[in-house]
C-alpha cells in the first residue's frame, strides 16, 4: 500500500500555499518532511486526510493504495481516516477531547470502523495504552486529559492513532510540544510501534535532528515547494540547498542551547536501528 502524491497544489484564494509538489511513500517506507512553519508541510498531511480548511482549494492527485483521494466524498474519506491512515497531531494539550475519558477516546478509531463488544474495546484500550508504555494502563481508562502530563497525553494520542493498525501513519510534529527530556521516550515508543506494525510513515517536523531517528528518506519544503530531497544522511552530511543548510544550523543552535537534551535523545536509537 503506497501513497503517491502528484502535482499537489493547495491555495487560499490567490494565495498558493502548496505549489505543485510530488512525492511517494512506498509500502513500509519512512519519509520525513522538514521545513519551517508556514512551508506547507502540515497542510500537505491534512490534504491526504481530506481535512484541509473548507476555504482551501486542493488540486492535483493523492493516490492511496491506487485510489484517488483528492475530490473524494468526505463520507468515503472518513472510512479511510483512522482505519488505514492514522494520524498523530502536534499539540497533546489540545488534540485530545477535554470532556471524554481516555478509555473512550483511545478506542474511537475502532468504534468508528469496527463493531466490537464493550469487553473487546476495553481489552484493546488496555493493550494499546500498555504498548505506549503507560504504567498501570487500566487506571487511565476513566481519566480525563487535563489530569495527565504532556508526555502521557502524547502517548495516548499515539495509541489512539495506531489502535486500528493503520498501514500509513501521518505524524505532524508529534514531539515538538514536549519537553526535550520527555521527547526521547515518546519518540522511542512511537518508533517501536511503527516498526511493529510495519506501516509506512510520513513524519513532518521542523527539527532536522529528529530525522535520522525516524526516517530514511526526506523532503525539504520551503514556501510550498520541495527544494531538496534524498536519503536523510545525505541531506544532513551534504546539504545542497541553502534552506536545508539553514535547518541544520537551526537544529545545531537548539542543541547547543539545550545541551544535555541531545544526549538524552541518543539512547532512542541510531539511524541504522530505525531503518530495519
Amino acid at each position: 500500500m503506497s501513497l503517491e502524491v502528484n502535482d499537489l497544489t493547495i491555495a487560499f484564494g490567490d494565495q498558493v500555499v502548496v505549489d505543485h509538489i510530488g512525492f511517494e511513500v512506498p509500502d513500509g517506507a519512512r519519509v520525513g518532511i522538514i521545513g519551517q512553519s508556514g512551508s506547507g508541510k502540515s497542510l500537505t498531511t491534512l490534504a491526504v486526510l481530506g481535512l484541509t480548511p473548507r476555504s482551501a482549494r486542493v488540486t492535483g492527485s493523492i493516490r492511496w493504495n491506487g485510489r484517488e483521494l483528492v475530490g473524494l466524498a468526505d463520507k468515503v474519506l472518513a472510512g479511510i481516516r483512522g482505519r488505514t491512515i492514522g494520524t498523530v497531531f502536534q499539540d497533546p494539550m489540545t488534540a485530545l477531547d477535554p470532556v471524554r475519558t481516555i478509555g473512550k477516546q483511545v478506542t474511537d478509531a475502532l468504534r468508528n470502523h469496527y463493531d466490537l463488544s464493550k469487553a473487546e474495546l476495553r481489552e484493546r484500550a488496555i493493550r494499546a495504552l500498555d504498548q505506549v508504555k503507560l504504567e498501570d494502563p487500566e487506571s487511565f481508562l476513566g481519566r480525563y486529559p487535563h489530569q495527565l502530563s504532556g508526555g502521557q497525553r502524547q502517548r495516548i494520542a499515539i495509541a489512539q492513532a495506531l489502535i486500528a493498525g493503520p498501514r500509513l501513519i501521518l505524524a505532524d510534529e508529534p514531539t515538538t510540544a514536549l519537553d526535550v527530556t520527555v521527547q526521547a521516550g515518546v519518540l522511542q515508543v512511537f518508533n517501536e510501534l511503527v516498526t511493529g506494525l510495519g506501516s509506512s510513515l510520513l513524519f513532518v517536523t521542523h527539527d532536522i535532528s529528529l530525522l535520522p531517528l525516524v526516517a530514511e528518506q526526506a523532503l525539504v519544503m520551503e514556501a510550498g515547494r520541495i527544494v531538496e530531497r534524498g536519503p536523510v544522511h545525505q541531506l544532513i552530511d551534504r546539504p545542497q540547498d541553502p534552506v536545508t543548510v539553514g535547518l541544520i544550523e537551526a537544529a545545531l543552535a537548539t542543541a547547543w542551547v539545550d545541551g544535555p537534551g541531545e544526549g538524552e535523545r541518543a539512547p532512542s536509537g541510531t539511524g541504522a536501528e530505525v531503518r530495519v
Binding site: 487560499f12 484564494g13 494565495q15 500555499v17 512553519s37 508556514g38 512551508s39 506547507g40 502540515s42 497542510l43 491534512l46 481535512l51 480548511p53 473548507r54 476555504s55 482551501a56 514556501a223 510550498g224
Partner: peptide, 11 residues
Amino acid sequence: QPAAGVITGVA
C-alpha cells in the same frame, strides 16, 4: 484571510 500554514478548522 488565512495565512500560509495556519491550520484552521475541520468542518
